[in-house]
Design a protein around this nucleic acid. Structure first.
Lengths: 189, 189
DNA sequence: ACTGCTTTTTACCAAATGGTAAATGGTTTA
DNA sequence: TAAACCATTTACCATTTGGTAAAAAGCAGT
């Protein structure tokens, strides 16, 4: 699983022995489309790294509408990290948008790694910061853009995702109705 | 500056000697309304902690419109942190919305503290994560809300700020025109 | 109190988006 | 292949929001 180790090594140096330890704890998990990686009302049991596929984060707002607010694709970590770390119940869902293959770590194994590798907390802290920053950079500009610009921006960021994700999820992510998104797509062609 | 030390102690334990060291490095900075704490095109020279006042983060989008995307008020850190840490030029402005009093740390002093206090990096890492999470929690929902709901949500989060910040900045933050916000305020009364 | 300046409110119309509903297209299952 | 099901597109109209402009209100300096 070179891609996974390469990803981690971007954030700190680890020797062969250390990366071997990390890999020895990783388990393979396959999710079918629509299966949940983590669910509202349940405690997140694992951290994942996506080898194949796309997942989405979603929740239900106070009007009962389902809101998709985040997508994650290949070669990225996926985790409801705050709830995972604290081992408290989640308030949102993480769902497979396509069939997925992931490397996963249980809470115990994740902690074991931290107890053996001194820099692990630092590295995972950097990774999390990085993910949070990216999330802000992608989501925040949507607030001030019109619907067409939102879609074009999304398309730039995720050119390969657009065809793998149902239109309704993308529309929800962009904060517009699926009718509007369909109309926008038509106008763009 | 008890509020400042109390803030930090939320994220880790420090003894008197350590907090004294931190305080010895802090300098007082006063900003007048509209003065910049950090500017696009310049390297951020300091990290601040707001004792009094409100600042905003803003940038110019590709249409030349000024976008306010973040407010920070009393008892919070203010920093263009990624650019500060890397000491590279900023791409956005941090401006005083009201007259402000801050505690500030130069890059050198900030690094000195990290070199003396072992846990400093860990603590500041936790603080940053916390700030990023809060930012996402406040900004992200705006994407899927209508204008009135955006304003009401903002009002809930910052009840005391609403009267200290020009309407045009709030409108920009909410991604609507100031005319719309004025209309919304009227409809609410 | 008056002047000049900025911010906020109002008004009007145009444009964009939402809501409801129906039609089309695509995929899976029997 | 047909039937059933789900996703997407289209259509229509109502509502919201934007753009331009002007009026009103608030504020600072003389």
């Amino acid at each position: 699983m070179k891609v996974f180790i390469d990803y981690i090594l971007q954030f700190g140096n680890l020797n062969k022995q250390q990366t071997d330890l990390i890999m020895s704890k990783a388990k393979m998990l396959e999710l079918h489309k629509d299966e949940y990686f983590s669910e509202a009302g349940k405690i997140p049991r694992q951290v994942g790294f996506i080898l194949e596929g796309v997942v989405r984060f979603c929740y239900y707002n106070n009007k009962g509408e389902e809101i998709t607010h985040h997508f994650i694709d290949e070669n990225n970590f996926v985790s409801d990290q705050q709830k995972f770390e604290a081992q408290v119940v989640a308030s949102e869902y993480i769902q497979a948008v396509t069939d997925c293959k992931l490397l996963v770590f249980s809470k115990k194994d994740w902690d074991d790694i931290a107890n053996i590798i001194v820099d692990w907390d630092k590295i995972t802290g950097l990774i999390l910061k990085n993910c949070l920053l990216k999330t802000i950079e992608r989501r925040s500009p949507l607030v001030s853009e019109d619907a067409t610009t939102r879609y074009l921006t999304f398309f730039e960021h995720f050119p390969t995702l657009v065809n793998r994700i149902p239109l309704s999820y993308i529309a929800s992510y962009l904060g517009i109705t699926q009718q509007s998104l369909s109309r926008i797509r038509k106008n763009i062609r």
